[in-house]
Design a protein around this nucleic acid. Structure first.
Lengths: 103, 103
DNA sequence: ATAGTATATAACAATATTTAAATATTGTTA
DNA sequence: TAACAATATTTAAATATTGTTATATACTAT
């Protein structure tokens, strides 16, 4: 087993939650504080913090303090490419899923 | 929350295991039966079957019967692109992880 | 110092995922 | 039909993840 696959898997795992994908897409247009992310996503603050911690632990976002607030940003904007790659390459699958769900 | 993110997350989840990545990379050079995958990965057959079932359920591999055997293949070779995108875009992260692990 | 604001962390319950072991299914061959 | 080979499915145990609630920390303003 190639050792690097373990770490690729970790990155995919960090991306394997819709809330985290949403956060990453939101950060695409720049640094945001938790106080902006929470009302945007409309989910509980501690949960947002935890998702951010997971993204940070996996190197996908960076954190910066500014007074009271913590500002988060993409540490590697390529992550957006990865998310869009799914749109581009697997749209048929996504559509199939959405249609199945509606039925 | 964009609905499609739920399904993107599912695809990432399917990719979030090193064994499954290994299987997909192995299938890159063509259709293989379980009887080839098991000795290649050196893990228990039921476990391989389960990983294959997860990949199939998520539309990443296809199955075909041939006599006794079941042949698996990539249903969308783009998945390999996705795996390699990580190599290309996150190599620094992967290296950091590997180095941390060695220490 | 005190109170308030922003955020993180901890503890918990509910749920999902992973693994290993046992068993079942399907096709093949004698 | 019986025995075998290849594979899938089931089950149970262990572990991880998610969401919720409560609490802690750290900074700001008074």
């Amino acid at each position: 087993m190639k050792n690097s696959n373990k770490f690729k898997a970790k990155i995919f795992r960090a991306l394997s939650d819709p809330t985290r994908i949403e956060i990453l897409e939101y950060l695409r247009d720049g640094e945001k504080c938790v106080c902006e992310i929470v009302p945007y996503l409309k989910i509980a603050q501690p949960l947002v913090s935890r998702h951010l911690a997971i993204l940070k632990r996996n190197g996908l976002v960076m954190e910066r303090k500014q007074g009271n607030k913590r500002l988060y940003s993409l540490s590697n904007p390529s992550v957006i490419k990865l998310i869009y790659a799914i749109d581009d390459e697997f749209m048929d699958l996504i559509l199939k899923n959405i249609i199945e769900q509606m039925a």
